[in-house]
Design a protein around this nucleic acid. Structure first.
Lengths: 344, 344
DNA sequence: TTGTACGCGTTATCAT
DNA sequence: ATGATAACGCGTACAA
């Protein structure tokens, strides 16, 4: 059995291809009976329209794509759910497209825009740094959502929804300082990496400075193991272990992700130490596990639901009026758990 | 600026479209200089080939798609990494495609197969139950990977890699019995749902029977809250809380997923009880958190890496020889953590 | 209400 | 080495 096309169906039914097309696409001016016949034979012959051909021919679709770099992040899940719900609510279709680590997300977007005749794009997550020039090639409305958007981007030229990573991480470290901690370690990503880790480290440094604490580079832990995911529990575990086994003193750890924090906790427990009695631990992201971990972990909770809703709102606004631009910076919440305590 | 096509580039360069095509696709018989010129103008004009047109024209691609239902599952991450690596190693491109909850994964596959001229498909995760008839429509090699494949499927007719959920959950519950537990609760998915939860419940019942323990329906907890993800920590928390507040006695809990187990632990800690001194907790999946949680959680670890590698191997085998079929059932490991203990 | 014919952007075949 | 042209499968303007 060869691949069935619209012509085959037309021939079998003894009608023209346009009639079949009308049947498929629910066009009004078609006889009910012929439509029934056509749909029946389509079922019988397992005919499936070729999407490439449709996309090629169609001048527009009703698809909104979400581009996401590194599906791994559990943090995105709750946002995706909102996207999916809202997009469907507005009768659009939802296309989730993963961007591989080494791929350029804007290139991918440009390609997808042509291929699928997208109505809108959401760039989800990651550290976003692209030239205005490149972004301007995008014909279709888009919103940058979540995480650090590099300063390079002219914020006036595009819509975005974000949290100020520097400020929020400052908030957390400042909180630790106010609890009396003077020796605070940070577990972050490699210095070379252009990532949110860099921004969060910046906030850390700023907070120490403002609290008249010196920055000791031995308390700044980077991931130097290429094979290790920089946001993983395993990395947090290894880093904290190394720290504990060194002679560097510290009373608190700020992990730039909750997963790292969980890993760090494990290392501390293994040394027979207690949290928060011996060490205070703080994370960042506000994923489920911070609440369910024992002890619960102090963290920065990004308002994912609200951010996702705003992202969608702005995107649709832009779809209505292509000149529309809006940038929104959300404030995160510092959720105090049982992993941090006042000292001295 | 209008959308640039291959014709525009050809016109600008003063060459024919076929020459441009040759330049794009690295064809051999083309003058190096004209090729350079063409690639240069392509850059300058930001020309991006339309994939729909390419897919339409091309008789085949080198793409392997992974279809995944509900990206949520952290358990899939490690498998995806293997897929991506192996697929690239063989010079294929990797396409991850999410299937929405209400969508039929085989329908999606059929569509994608035509649209992208796929070389192979991997169905990842979930409870798979489709008629042989439907599966037979698939022209392209595929492998079903992970989780419960319904008995409905004629296993001789397709390739698969799986773990026997009934047997593995039996293994865990049997282990709890052997530790002396006689009152074991299970937290699972709604009975109506055709899911792996059903299979794991079956293993639970079987193990109890074989250990001469009666099955008390009050110790079987289903998720009756539609809005609650059946595999989430929150559900585990709510379910365990309900159980603790009832007068139903139990000394151990078997959670059909690790996330549920974590949630259950939280509920127990909140009541001021200890794990494993007061209650033993066991999970299923073997995700990272079971190791990093405090206490570490006894779980069934599915050999995800090996399973993913086998999946890929079988798929390529099938691509080579389309009549090839292989089914492989993996045995999982029971990882003993600190969340379970012998009683009495 | 229905059928014919053209074109969407690309690749492949065949000339040249 | 290069260019004209025929497909790929579909939607739609237009004619009937």
């Amino acid at each position: 059995m060869e691949v069935t096309t619209i012509k085959d169906i037309a021939r079998i039914c003894g009608v023209g291809v346009s009639t079949v097309s009308r049947a498929i696409n629910n066009h009004p001016d078609i006889n009910e009976d012929t439509k029934k016949l056509i749909l029946k034979t389509i079922k019988e012959h397992n005919y499936i329209p070729n999407n490439s051909a449709r996309n090629l021919k169609r001048l527009e679709s009703n698809t909104i794509a979400v581009l996401i770099k590194g599906i791994t992040n559990p943090f995105f899940n709750s946002m995706l759910k909102v996207f999916e719900k809202e997009i469907h609510k507005k009768k659009y279709s939802f296309l989730l497209h993963r961007v591989e680590e080494q791929e350029d997300e804007v290139d991918v977007a440009l390609e997808l825009e042509k291929e699928k005749r997208l109505k809108g794009i959401i760039f989800l997550g990651g550290y976003f740094s692209h030239s205005v020039e490149k972004l301007n090639q995008m014909k279709v409305p888009f919103v940058l959502s979540t995480g650090g958007i590099s300063e390079i981007i002219d914020k006036k030229n595009c819509s975005y929804v974000m949290v100020d990573d520097v400020q929020e991480s400052y908030r957390m470290v400042d909180y630790l300082c106010k609890l009396g901690h003077k020796k605070i370690a940070i577990i972050t990503t490699p210095p070379s990496e252009e990532s949110i880790g860099k921004l969060r480290l910046e906030g850390y440094k700023k907070a120490l400075k403002d609290n008249q604490l010196s920055i000791d580079s031995r308390r700044i832990l980077y991931n130097d193991d290429e094979s290790l995911d920089s946001f993983s529990m395993k990395y947090g575990y290894e880093a904290a272990k190394k720290l504990l086994e060194s002679d560097v003193e510290f009373t608190a750890v700020f992990a730039i992700s909750d997963s790292i924090a969980v890993g760090a906790c494990k290392a501390i427990f293994e040394k027979g130490k207690r949290i928060p009695e011996d060490y205070s631990i703080a994370g960042y992201d506000g994923i489920d596990i911070t609440f369910y971990y024992h002890p619960s972990i102090t963290t920065i909770r990004q308002p994912t639901i609200e951010m996702a809703e705003e992202t969608i709102r702005i995107l649709f606004e832009t779809i209505e009026d292509s000149s529309y631009k809006e940038g929104k910076i959300f404030t995160a919440d510092l959720i105090v758990g049982n992993s941090t305590k006042r000292i001295r």
